[in-house]
Computed example of a mutant assay.
Amino acid sequence: MRLVKTPRRRSTRPLAGVALYGVVAAAVLASYLNSLHGEFVHDDIPAVARNKDVLASASVAEVFLDDFWGTPMSDPTSHKSYRPLTTITFR
């Protein structure tokens, strides 16, 4: 008895996964695209527009000593919200 190899069919499943990721990425881009030209609102103004750490009027070393709002962590009025990497990305 002779065994005959039949050619394998390619699965279309990987292409469906790529298409799904493409649809999700397009939906995300479409929903946030209109926000790129917007103004700062609410807490964006003190956190970004007026923050000395973001405006680069302070050294990078000071970013690691201040809270998210640009207030020194040792200050009693500090919120103690420590996010130096986030602050550096706004520079």
Rank of each mutant, 00 (worst) to 15 (best):
T12P: 06
P84G: 03
T6S: 07
P84S: 02
R83C: 04
D75H: 13
A30S: 09
N51W: 04
F64N: 13
H42I: 10
A26M: 06
S35N: 13
V18M: 12
S57R: 15
D66H: 14
V54C: 01
S31R: 13
L85Y: 15
T87K: 00
D53P: 00
A61S: 12
S59D: 06
S11C: 00
S81G: 02
T86L: 13
S35I: 10
L55F: 01
A56I: 05
G70A: 01
S31M: 14
A30V: 07
H37M: 12
A56D: 04
R13A: 11
N51K: 06
R13K: 04
V28I: 14
A56K: 15
A19M: 06
V24R: 00
P7T: 08
S31C: 09
L36F: 14
L36C: 05
E39C: 09
K80L: 07
V28G: 04
E62F: 00
P14H: 00
V28T: 08
G22T: 05
G17E: 10
H79V: 08
Y32I: 15
S59R: 08
Y21Q: 09
K80Q: 09
A30Y: 08
L55H: 03
V28W: 12
T6K: 13
K5Y: 11
P14L: 00
S59N: 06
T89E: 05
P7F: 05
M1W: 11
D67L: 02
L15I: 09
T86S: 09
L15F: 15
P72L: 02
H42R: 15
F64T: 12
A19R: 09
L29I: 11
R8P: 04
H37I: 10
S35D: 10
G38I: 03
S57H: 12
R50F: 03
S81R: 14
G70P: 01
S11L: 01
V4N: 07
S74Q: 07
S81A: 10
D53K: 05
V23S: 07
H42P: 05
A16I: 13
D66E: 07
V60C: 06
T12H: 06
W69C: 05
S81H: 10
Y82E: 05
G17L: 14
D43Q: 11
R91L: 02
V60K: 15
T77P: 00
H42L: 14
L15G: 15
E39T: 14
S59H: 04
T87M: 02
P76H: 04
I88G: 03
L85G: 09
A25W: 06
Y32F: 14
P76A: 01
A49W: 07
D67M: 03
L3H: 15
L3N: 13
M1T: 11
G22A: 07
I88E: 08
A26Y: 06
G38T: 14
G70I: 01
R50S: 04
R83Y: 12
N34Y: 15
M73I: 15
P14Y: 00
L29H: 09
S35H: 13
H42S: 15
K80E: 08
N34E: 08
A30P: 02
V41W: 07
